[in-house]
């Protein structure tokens, strides 16, 4: 079956790798805050791109809903809320403006999108996949980032229970992945970065996790070394 799939944060990294992978067999719309011309990674010509900055969650929700209507998409089989940002800080003291930005982009926009996209998902009896992080339990290097992802963990736990039988809701917690995120976060992982998981392998693990509909799932080294990126059911 050809699916209709929406992926936020699909202008780079994990989201784009997942979108490229799925675009061969499905219709995929991706979002990002940057202009289309600023996308530097491989971008499948089959993808539909929507520029929607989640720094203003309410505006982003409106732009995305309008884009769906404009494209004539009346249902969504899969929604992957993956857009995210984070900043490394010293002494676990975040900057107030960055607290707001991180919570807006990672938590509030994700929650508002879940709410607004409900009719599309319900119509397809679809799956809502939310991207957390292994940091969701708390990490001194990025306290607010961890908090924003912890929020998503509790959110999914409640919503998965509420929507059972209507829309599957799951949270996936990726482990360290080789994307621009670490450089953007102002965190130099040094030599460690080379052992991080490739975005394409992470995308494979995500696709299999999406088709399993299980939650919560941690997609980190353990799963990877156990063959998580080569074994699983595709969507």
């Amino acid at each position: 079956m050809r699916r209709k799939i929406l992926i936020t944060g699909g202008s780079s990294g994990i989201g784009l790798a997942l979108a490229n992978r799925l675009s061969a067999r499905h219709d995929v719309m991706v979002t990002g805050s940057r202009d289309r011309s600023k996308i530097t990674e491989v971008f499948s010509p089959n993808l539909i791109y929507v520029q929607a900055s989640q720094s203003d969650p309410k505006a982003a929700v409106k732009i995305i809903a309008e884009a769906l209507l404009k494209a004539g998409w009346v249902k969504l089989d899969n929604v992957v809320l993956n857009a995210g940002t984070g900043f490394a800080v010293k002494n676990a003291i975040d900057d107030v403006e960055r607290v707001r930005q991180t919570i807006d982009i990672n938590s509030t926009a994700t929650i508002l999108l879940s709410r607004t996209l409900y009719p599309w998902l319900a119509k397809a009896e679809g799956t809502l996949t939310i991207v957390g992080s292994v940091a969701h339990k708390g990490q001194a290097l990025f306290p607010v980032y961890a908090a924003s992802k912890g929020a998503l963990h509790g959110f999914v736990r409640a919503l998965r229970s509420e929507w059972r039988g209507r829309v599957a809701v799951q949270i996936l917690h990726p482990g360290p992945t080789k994307t621009d995120m670490h450089a953007k976060a102002g965190h130099d992982a040094g030599r460690l970065h080379s052992i991080f998981i490739n975005p394409s392998s992470m995308a494979a693990m995500m696709e299999y996790a999406m088709s399993s509909k299980r939650s919560p799932l941690s997609l980190s080294f353990l799963k990877y070394y156990l063959g998580g990126s080569i074994m699983g059911k595709s969507l």
Partner: peptide
């Protein structure tokens, strides 16, 4: 269940404190 965004907000605090 029945207060998903409330649960989210309170988890954010618990995780922030732990971090």
């Amino acid at each position: 269940p029945g207060a998903a965004s409330y649960a989210a907000s309170k988890d954010a605090l618990a995780v922030y404190a732990k971090a």
